[in-house]
Amino acid sequence: MFNPQWLTSFATLAEIGSFTDSAERLGITQAAVSQHIRHLELQLGPLLLRSKRPLELTPAGRALLDYCQQVDRAQRHLALRLSDDDVTCGEVSLISPGSIGLRLYPLLLALQKHYPDLSVRHRFAPDSEVMDAVLHNRYEMGLVTQKPDDKRLVAEKFAEEPLELVIPAGASVHRWEDLEALGYIDHPDGQAMATRLLSRRFPGNPGVRNLPQRGFSNQIGLILEPVARGLGFAVLPRFARLAFARPAEIAVATDNVELVDTIWLIHRAEWPLSARAQQALRWLKNSMYNS
């Protein structure tokens, strides 16, 4: 049986790759982290290649990291089971893409206000990070835009979200030339989203890369700021547009062509969602289109 603090120090070091940063995250000294690793290496042999930057695990180190993750999963599973009787207290953890997260996080806070002993933990992340976080039990629930085929995950349809062509209030878009005149506001998923939607709206168009780019933001809550100021257009999922603080300053260019994405709820297949998580999901589904 290994000292739990030694294992925590090792797992943190394996994730971060730096003794200094690991010590800062753990709230202990760098010397303490080094001592914990030395204790483990006395029993297991070399765990790290210290000459590499970032640090590289030896085969023994990878085996120990797998063990740490198994212990962590077991502890989280036990905590969920032991605390599942009372849905009014404990943690609700959700990781999701930015757009739907903007819609759901305020609703989760409303649930927490109703049950003050709940603790809401939410993170914005792309699909790949969402799946990894759920698989490794860092979050109980996740939302993704692409249905995973990993048998360790259960995927259920949670919501639908159209992509929208968002333009400044008072502007109009009927032809590709109108988009060229406005210019494009990009974001990390912008090229892919714009290509998918605009290829349907304007078949045979030259492509979004040929449009004048008027700006870029990696903060989903700020992407529509330049649009509201008349500096260009953007293509975003609907919930991102609904979360914008000044809706009167933007508009949606509509026609008969729609592109609707499915949002999938994922969780581990080996055990059911906690009663708290199930309650939170019912709350979200009842609230997200009615508030």
Rank of each mutant, 00 (worst) to 15 (best):
G207E: 10
V208R: 00
V208G: 05
R209N: 11
R209D: 10
N210C: 12
N210E: 11
N210Y: 09
L211I: 07
L211M: 05
L211A: 13
L211C: 10
L211R: 10
P212Q: 11
P212M: 10
P212G: 03
P212H: 09
P212F: 02
Q213G: 00
Q213W: 10
Q213N: 07
R214G: 11
R214N: 14
R214D: 10
R214K: 11
G215P: 08
G215M: 14
G215Q: 09
G215N: 07
F216I: 13
S217W: 15
S217L: 06
S217T: 11
S217E: 00
N218I: 14
N218M: 15
N218W: 12
N218Y: 14
Q219G: 03
I220F: 14
I220N: 08
G221L: 12
G221S: 13
G221T: 05
G221Y: 03
G221H: 07
L222I: 08
L222R: 03
L222S: 10
I223L: 04
I223V: 06
I223G: 01
L224V: 12
L224Q: 02
L224D: 03
L224H: 01
E225N: 03
E225F: 07
P226W: 01
P226F: 05
P226G: 01
P226I: 04
V227G: 05
V227D: 02
A228L: 13
A228T: 02
A228R: 00
R229K: 15
R229Q: 13
R229Y: 11
R229E: 04
G230K: 13
G230W: 08
G230Y: 01
L231F: 14
G232M: 03
G232P: 00
F233N: 00
F233W: 08
F233I: 04
A234H: 14
A234D: 12
V235R: 07
L236G: 15
L236Y: 13
L236D: 04
L236N: 15
